[in-house]
């Protein structure tokens, strides 16, 4: 989205939306896409809404940024959006300020804002981590429903693999800023190819044996400024060999639209992961 603060920038790669290349788009072009084609929802709902502006102001400006409508029409659309995300008494709540909402409600408002212009894609950056579990699942269900209704694609960035299992069609696992494995959610979660994915799955409480300490991935994530020369995961990987430390693995394509970036991927059929394996 071109929202990363300096010194962060796009080093390489390509981002396509509906066939349109986004990398290298100028500020004007990018602005036209933000909020219109691609919307974002951020992690902390307490911080994403401007505390001194009323909800309706913040919603109408999102509409105004992309099209010319009368204030009345915009207001009506804002109210509709609030109703869609399940905010009671939407007409009154439009006049409220962010601090008059609870965390969950604020995140709903943020979602409503993201939905305002019927984007083709919503990127949600850990949108439920700051909320408690019951609210989390409500929001999750709402998002799923809304995206299904409007045919909006959703990229959900999260640490929570149970959310992934319930929500996603495809999953992409990232480590140290790079994609390490992608595939359909069942394939990846049941038969991970990459040691990092497997490590993640193994550290889930539901995967462990009751009474035993959870398995961990040893070590810490490296600083993005000082990545090792070879595979970024090599210092923490059990399967690491000499080549891993030397060269960064290329992506290898596997059947069923899967990809993994690893010199020694697990064979997806021979090495299933889970309780049975122990």
């Amino acid at each position: 989205m071109g929202l990363v603060d300096p010194p962060g920038r796009i080093v390489s790669g390509s981002i396509k939306l509906g066939g349109k290349e986004l990398v290298g788009l100028d500020d004007q072009g990018m602005r036209a896409i933000r909020g219109k084609e691609i919307s974002m929802i951020f992690q902390d709902p307490m911080m994403t809404l401007n505390p001194v502006l009323r909800i309706d102001t913040q919603m109408i400006e999102a509409i105004d940024a992309h099209e010319k409508t009368s204030k009345k029409a915009a207001l009506a659309r804002a109210q509709q959006a609030l109703e869609k995300v399940g905010i009671p008494a939407a007409a009154d709540r439009l006049k409220a300020y962010p601090h008059q909402f609870s965390g969950g409600m604020r995140q709903r408002v943020a979602i409503a804002i993201a939905l305002l212009n019927n984007p083709s894609l919503i990127i949600a950056d850990e949108p439920t981590t700051a909320l408690d579990v019951t609210i989390q699942s409500q929001i999750l269900a709402k998002m799923q429903e809304l995206c299904a209704d409007s045919g909006t694609a959703l990229i959900w960035i999260t640490h929570d693999l149970t959310v992934v299992a319930g929500l996603a069609h495809r999953v992409a696992v990232m480590y140290a800023g790079r994609l390490v494995e992608t595939g359909f959610v069942d394939d990846v979660l049941d038969h991970p190819l990459h040691p990092y994915t497997r490590g993640l799955l193994r550290s889930l409480p539901s995967e462990g044996i009751p009474g035993q300490p959870l398995e961990q991935i040893p070590g810490m994530t490296p600083s993005l400024g000082r990545l090792p020369p070879g595979c970024a995961f090599a210092p923490r990987c059990r399967n690491a060999t000499e080549i891993c430390h030397r060269s960064s693995p290329e992506g290898t394509v596997f059947p069923n639209q899967r990809l993994a970036r690893c010199h020694h991927p697990f064979d997806s059929v021979a090495q299933p992961v889970g309780l049975t394996e122990r």
Binding site: F42, D44, T48
Partner: peptide, 20 residues
Amino acid sequence: DYVKFARAKGLKESVIIRVH
């Protein structure tokens, strides 16, 4: 974050500065 969010909404920089 609200400034980032405002940008994500596609607001012009001048609007962000003036309003937010």
